[in-house]
């Protein structure tokens, strides 16, 4: 009886796991097939004659927006966006979270509530005025412009993570630092920041995932040719014209998804810890 139950348990879990993995396996298998196998063979069939041709084409020579140099250009764009946006938003979120955690006036709790509500605002609501602002700053269609927009949209989430962590730090530690003569910044730098490394790692992993996966902001704010890989991928696979090379599309999809998947596997539990806090951010 017990053995049967356990068997059923593992069976259900394994079926569920296969169901989740199935689309990913299809993606991988399709990307390794030559085109005639894709059009004439079955979706379920494994590649008879595995080849990396589709990958090569997706990376180096597929035509996207009239530019036939493959996904590599856009992939590089994504990194150029992610890295400054990531560190900028972490720095801003950490210092803001720290200042809010001191709760030195009632305004700081008010600001925190205002930020928290900001997590739920759909980007469509503030998108157009944001375009106007970025244009007025002379940054529309440029990399710094898009980085700025990511900074704004990531602020609430990163601040939330850091603020809640810093609130959990014993108050005696801050008092002790004050007695030792450490001011606002010295306390942050020497005492709190080293302590917050685990949270910073969570923020890093999650923000990397969010910014890399962003589509809407990249679509709207990046100038032509500067869009992130998600936008390019959608252009490539979503174009309704001409014969679709599904194997190339799938290879491109794998390539676009690879960095965040890698980060996911490398980060382990960090992702799980942050995901609930950041789930509101879509």
């Amino acid at each position: 009886m017990n053995a049967m139950r356990r068997g059923a348990l593992y069976l259900m879990l394994t079926v569920a796991a296969l169901a989740v993995l199935f689309p990913l396996l299809v993606m991988l298998s399709t990307s390794l097939k030559p085109l005639d196998e894709v059009t004439n063979g079955s979706l379920f069939a494994l590649p008879q004659d595995p080849t990396l041709d589709a990958w090569r084409k997706a990376w180096g020579s597929a035509c996207i927006s009239g530019q036939c140099s493959g996904l590599s250009v856009w992939f590089a764009n994504s990194f150029a966006i992610v890295i400054p946006a990531l560190f900028g938003s972490l720095a801003l979120g950490a210092i803001t979270g720290y200042a809010l955690s001191l709760r030195s006036s009632r305004w700081s709790d008010l600001l925190f509530a205002a930020l928290l509500i900001g997590l739920f605002i759909p980007p469509q609501v503030t998108l157009y005025p944001m375009i106007v602002l970025v244009r007025e700053m002379g940054l529309f269609g440029s990399l710094p412009g898009l980085v700025f927009v990511h900074l704004v949209w990531g602020l609430a989430f990163v601040t939330l993570l850091f603020r809640n962590f810093f609130l959990s730090v014993p108050r005696d530690l801050l008092k002790s630092a004050r007695v030792d003569g450490a001011g606002f910044l010295a306390t942050f730098w020497y005492v709190l920041l080293p302590l917050s490394l685990p949270v910073a790692a969570v923020a890093l992993v999650l923000q990397f995932t969010y910014i890399w996966n962003d589509f809407l902001l990249g679509l709207t704010f990046a100038g032509p040719g500067r869009q992130p890989v998600t936008v390019a991928l959608n252009t490539l696979a979503g174009s309704q014209f001409g014969a679709q090379e599904h194997n190339v599309n799938m290879a491109a999809t794998v390539i676009a998804a690879l960095p965040t998947i890698l980060v996911y596997f490398l980060s382990g539990r960090l992702f799980v810890r942050g995901i609930a806090a950041g789930a509101v951010k879509g």
Binding site: K175, R178, P194
Partner: peptide
Amino acid sequence: PDERDIAMVFQSYALYPT
């Protein structure tokens, strides 16, 4: 506090963990 020429020991010790 740091200009008063005092030192303080806390109940929780408040040692800097890192």
